[in-house]
Write a protein that binds this DNA or RNA. Sequence first.
RNA 1: GGAGGGGUUCCCGAGUGGCCAAAGGGAUCAGACUGUAAAUCUGACGCGUAAGCUUCGGUGGUUCGAAUCCACCCCCCUCCA
Length: 434
Amino acid sequence: MTINKDLLGQLRSLGLIAQVSSEPELIEHLAEGSRTVYCGFDPTADSLHIGNLVPLLALRRFQLAGHKPILLVGGATGMIGDPGGRTSERDLKSADVVKAFVAKIREQASRFLDFDCGENSAIVVDNAEWTEKLTVVDFLRDIGKHFSVNAMVQKETVKRRLEDDASGISYTEFSYMILQSYDYTILNERYDCTIQMGGSDQWGNITAGIDLVRRMNGNQAYAITYPLITNSDGTKFGKSMGNAIWIDAQRTSPYSFYQFWRNSADADVIDYLKIFTFFDAAHIDQLAAAHDQDPGARAAHIALAQAVTRLVHGDEGVDAAERISEALFTNQLSQLSASDLGQLAQDGMSASETQSADISLIDVLVDSGLAVTPKGQVTAGQAKKLITSNAVSVNGVKIEDPEHRLKTADALHGCYQVIQKGKKNHHLLIHVVD
RNA sequence: GGAGGGGUUCCCGAGUGGCCAAAGGGAUCAGACUGUAAAUCUGACGCGUAAGCUUCGGUGGUUCGAAUCCACCCCCCUCCA
C-alpha cells in the first residue's frame, strides 16, 4: 500500500475539512507512513443512517490512502450523551443493545471499509471495554487531575450550556469530554492511533484528547474535524418526510434512498457529490457544468443518486430504484404490464394487499400510512383532508370525492391500484380476491 | 436548606376569569408555479370522515364559567448556604 501524500489537501478540496490541529506537522505525519485514525459512533439505533456516512466515507478515504481506520462504538459514552447534543440526557443502553450495534455497524461499515486487507484493515472497538473497568478513584487520580476545569468551562459546548438559563449542564455530561479524551489515550496506547476525526462540534473534545494523550502517553496526536452537513435551506440534513434515511434496506428501501438523493436541492448537489461519492474532480466539474447549463435535466442529481445508492445497496438496488422511479414519475402507469407492477412491490415500493374487491379510499390511505398528519399520526380525518385538498390520485387520476371506493373493476389488470399522495408518495394496493 | 425566576399545543413564544383548541413565528404536510430543486403564494396543522370530545407540569378547590384566581405537590433554572 502506497501512501497518498496529499490526503489532507484532497479532503479539503472535497469540503471535508473544518479544522485541523498543527497542520504542517500533521501533513508530514500523514505523508511519512501508515497512520491509525479513529472516529466515534454512538449506538443510538441499530442501524447507521446517512449522517454517519460522512465520517465513514472519510475513513474510507484514509484507508484508500494507506491508513488504518478504527471505528469506536460509544458503548460507554453513548450512555451519557455529549452536551453538544443538547437537550435531554440519553437512555442507558444495555450491554446487549450495544453488542448488537457493534455487530451491525461492522456489517454495514464493511460495505465501505475493508476489514481484511492486512496492515491497514479497519477494526471496530467498544469503549465500554475500558471505561467500565475504571474505578472512581482511578478516574479522578489518573485522568481527572489532567483536566483543568477552568479550561473545560471555556469549551464552546460547555459554555453554551452554562449560559443557557433553561437547561444548564449536569456533571455527568460535563464529564463526557474526559471520557472521550480517555478513549483517545487508550487507542493511542494500544493501536498507536494518532488521529481522531469527528464533526466540527467535536473539536473541543478532540483537542482535549490530544492534551491527555500528551500528558499520559507523552505522544503527539492530531485532530481533524469535518463540517456538519446542512441543507442549504437550513433544515437538518438526512431527513425525508420526517424520517431518517437509514443504510439498512429494511428501514429505508433502496427506492426511498435513491429518491432522497435525487431530491437534493440544487444548491447542495455538488457538495454532496464531493462528500458522498468517489468521483474524481474532473467528473464532478463536468457534472456541475452540465447542471448549470440545463438544471432541468437533473444530470448531477441522477448521478449522485445512482452513485450513493450503488455504494450502499449495490447495482441491484439502483436498478430497482430506477425501475420504480421510472414507472411512478413518468405517470404512464397504464402501460405497465401486470408483471411490471408485481415487480414494483418486490423491488421495495410500499405495497399492501386487500381481500376486498371494493374498499373505501379513506381506509386505504389510513392502512397504508399515507394519511399521516404533520404530527406523525395516521388518521382518517387526515385522509379526508388530503382528498379534499386535491392531494390524492389513484392510478394517475385525481380523486376529489372523500367517499370514493376502490373497486377491482377500476384496478389495473384487475388487481393493482397505485395510490398517490402529493407528488412523491406512492403506495401499491393489490386486490387478492379470486 | 434559603431567596428569586420559570413549566402553554412538535419547537420558540403570546395569553393573567368568558370573544381560547389558545396570537405570532419556525418546523411539518398538501395545493399552485416549476425541473421529482429552491424561492414565492395558498390551505392544513389536538382527536374525531361527523355530532362532539380532550388539552395549557400534577392534584384538589373557588366560580354559572379557569391556561388564567386559591391551596398543596412535582420538575427545571439562577444566586446564597
